[in-house]
């Protein structure tokens, strides 16, 4: 199928199988920021924005995403660079494999709630696992981005 997406602000057409997952489509398109972690929608490493909401792209079929407005960490690097900078400056990452997904979820959170409390960050970000940091520095990064 020819899949049309608004991808990081640009309209693109991608030839793919309708039963491919959005994660594979994006990665084969060269956007490898979204990672395959658990591949069952638990870890959040594949999180991208689909029509404004953070979604596990490992679970979304290409056919379901046809016509959607999709943003990845690569696009947010241009649209909202202060979030990536806040993670880099506040040790909000170590190995970094979960970080593009964390940044996407953090962006979505701050769009909905520009000044979240610690408890609100914990709840919203619970779907993005991080094995390295213990999470406190991720919360500090999001607070820094909120105040940037």
């Amino acid at each position: 199928m020819n899949m049309r997406l608004k991808l990081n602000g640009d309209v693109v057409t991608i030839d793919t199988q309708p039963d491919a997952f959005l994660l594979e489509v994006l990665r084969e398109h060269g956007l490898t920021g979204a990672k395959e972690g658990c591949a069952v929608g638990v870890c959040g490493a594949c999180t991208v924005l689909v029509n404004g909401d953070p979604v596990s792209s490992c679970l979304l079929l290409a056919g379901q995403a046809d016509g959607a407005d999709v943003w990845t960490a690569e696009g947010l690097a241009r649209a909202a660079p202060h979030i990536a900078a806040a993670f880099a400056d506040n040790e909000g990452l170590q190995c970094g494999i979960c970080t593009p997904g964390q940044v996407v979820s953090a962006y979505a959170l701050l769009q909905k709630n520009p000044h979240p409390t610690d408890a609100e960050i914990r709840t919203y970000m619970a779907g993005n696992l991080c094995r390295c940091t213990g999470y406190a520095s991720i919360r500090r990064s999001i607070e820094a981005a909120a105040n940037a």
């Binding site: 690569e74 990536a84 990452l93 970094g96 593009p100």
Partner: peptide, 20 residues
């Protein structure tokens, strides 16, 4: 002290083995 690898990782630019 910002991480030397921080921006590349947080923007999806860093290339891991599965991204090669």
């Amino acid at each position: 002290m910002a991480r030397v690898d921080g921006i590349a990782k947080a923007t999806g630019a860093a290339i891991y083995a599965a991204d090669v």
